[in-house]
Design a protein around this nucleic acid. Structure first.
Length: 98
DNA sequence: TACGTGACGGATG
DNA sequence: GCATCCGCCACGT
């Protein structure tokens, strides 16, 4: 079940369009069986050679999760055209699915 | 097998 | 709006 769950999570993340983001909570809902924390656990344990756009996964409210690669994540998102407001949050119209 | 940890989220004060 | 607290459950040791 957990292998299947990770597959669902990775599939969902792989289908996020460039320039858009989604949240841990949304992914958890889509998989129906995962929690936001478990989605984070999956992302943390991705194999090295993965091609997943992990940086398109953000915390609730359009904030960046507090983790080691957060600054890089912000840079990668900005490179894709994702905008941040003055408080460092991503506006709702950048979310996926809309 | 059991237990502690944590890339979260929602409720509460 | 910010600071805490607590529930959630997959992971790694």
């Amino acid at each position: 079940m957990r292998a299947e769950l990770r597959e669902q999570v990775t599939t969902i993340i792989a289908s996020i369009p460039a320039g858009r983001v989604t949240t841990y909570g949304r992914i958890a809902k889509m998989t129906e069986g995962a929690t936001a924390r478990s989605v984070g656990a999956v992302l943390r344990t991705l194999p090295e050679g993965h091609r997943l756009p992990w940086f398109r996964v953000v915390a609730a409210g359009g904030r960046l999760a507090d983790h080691e690669g957060a600054s890089e994540q912000r840079r990668l998102l900005a490179a894709e055209g994702v905008v941040f407001d003055e408080r460092g949050r991503i506006p709702a119209h950048c979310f996926w699915p809309e």
